[in-house]
Simulated assay, not measured.
Amino acid sequence: MIRVLRAAKPLAVIALPLLIAACTTVQPQPPATASYSAIPPHVAQRYAAIETEKFKVPAVDLDDLQPRNMRQLVDYPTKHRPGTLVVDPHQRFLYLVQEHGKALRYGVGVGKAGLEFTGTATVQRKAQWPRWTPTPDMIRRDPRRYAKWSGGMAGGESNPLGARALYLFKNGNDTLYRIHGTNEPETIGEAVSSGCIRMMNQDVIDLYNRIPSGSKVVVL
């Protein structure tokens, strides 16, 4: 049985050409603003700075924290078993299915393209403060931006994968599709990357702690 207190959101596993630019930002739209008074203090505290990690996790600016994107327990009748991750890239939510018709819903950022994949995948690997390496196609397309990271970027506050990453596999093969944190929390709820599903670092840490490797992922 899974503890509750938070919320989820959708995703999409992408064809190889799109995964090439996964996890990088593409022309984000200005985020909608939420007033401080709209967010209860006990909820805002979930997005406070985290000082106990290997690297500091900054607080999410409350002006960037839209109420719909905060993790929360919602009604979610579904045929999927508790513990399943259901990603809805169109509504931009990721759901962690709970018992009794409930789900923990998280707001997520999605790719501008990359909704071709539908179906199921498995979280075959989990990583804390993961290393990020641009793909060869990314480097060919924009060498000035990515060539310097051909050997990889160590995990840290500036790493585009954020504090955690969940690596999705299908039929034993790496899809190159990730659910991961971000150092750009203002992009949550937007379609700004070319691939991966991004979450606020506070949310991806929460999700990481709730699910084991082998968890099923369903992409709508």
Rank of each mutant, 00 (worst) to 15 (best):
I2D: 12
I2F: 14
I2K: 15
I14V: 06
A15V: 02
A15T: 06
L16K: 14
A22K: 02
C23K: 03
V26K: 03
T33C: 10
P40S: 02
V43P: 09
V43T: 09
A44Y: 04
Q45W: 11
R46Y: 11
K56T: 10
A59P: 02
A59C: 09
D61Y: 06
P67I: 10
L73W: 02
H80G: 04
D88V: 02
R92G: 04
F93W: 08
G101F: 00
K102C: 07
A103M: 12
R105W: 15
R105M: 14
F117T: 13
T118C: 12
Q124I: 00
K126V: 06
Q128M: 09
W129D: 04
W129A: 03
T133I: 04
D137F: 14
I139Y: 08
R140C: 12
R141G: 12
W149R: 07
A154C: 11
L166T: 04
Y167M: 07
K170R: 14
N171Y: 10
N173T: 11
Y177V: 01
G181R: 07
T182N: 15
I188K: 13
I188L: 14
A191F: 07
I197E: 15
R198G: 03
M199C: 05
M200Q: 15
Q202H: 06
Q202Y: 00
Q202D: 03
I205F: 05
I205H: 04
Y208V: 01
N209T: 07
V217N: 09
V219L: 14
